Amino acid sequence: MYTQCPECLTVYKVEAESLVPACGCLRCGHCGSIFNALGTLAAQLPPEPFTRLVEHALDQDPPLAEVAVFRPRVAEPAPEPAGMPITVPVEGAAEIHAGEGVQEGEDFTQLTFTPRFARETKRRSWRTAAWVSVCLLLVLGLGAQLAWAKRDSLVADPTFGPALQTACTVLGCELPLVAAPGELRLLARDVEQHPSVPDGLLITASVHNDARFAQPYPVVTIVLSDANGQRLAMRRFQPEDYVGDAAIRTRGLAGGATTAMVFEVQDPGQHAVAFAFSFE
Rank of each mutant, 00 (worst) to 15 (best):
Q4C: 02
C8F: 01
Y12H: 15
A16M: 13
E17M: 12
R27N: 11
H30D: 14
G39S: 02
A43T: 14
P47S: 09
P47N: 06
F50S: 04
V54Y: 09
H56E: 03
A65T: 10
V67M: 09
R73D: 15
V74N: 10
A75P: 02
A78I: 08
G83C: 02
P89T: 07
P89H: 04
V90A: 07
E95K: 12
E106S: 15
Q110G: 07
R119L: 15
E120I: 10
E120F: 02
T121C: 13
W126T: 00
R127L: 13
W131K: 11
V139Y: 08
L140I: 09
G141Q: 06
L146W: 09
S153L: 08
L154S: 07
A156V: 02
T159K: 12
P162D: 00
P162Q: 03
A167F: 08
T169P: 05
T169W: 14
A180S: 15
G182I: 00
R185L: 12
L186V: 05
R189L: 08
S196P: 00
P198D: 03
G200R: 05
G200A: 01
L201A: 01
L201R: 04
F213K: 02
V219M: 04
V220C: 00
D226R: 06
N228Q: 15
G229Q: 03
M234V: 08
P239T: 04
E240G: 10
G244T: 09
A246F: 11
R249C: 05
G252L: 01
T258G: 10
T258S: 15
F263V: 02
V265G: 07
Q266I: 11
D267K: 04
D267R: 06
P268R: 06
Q270F: 14
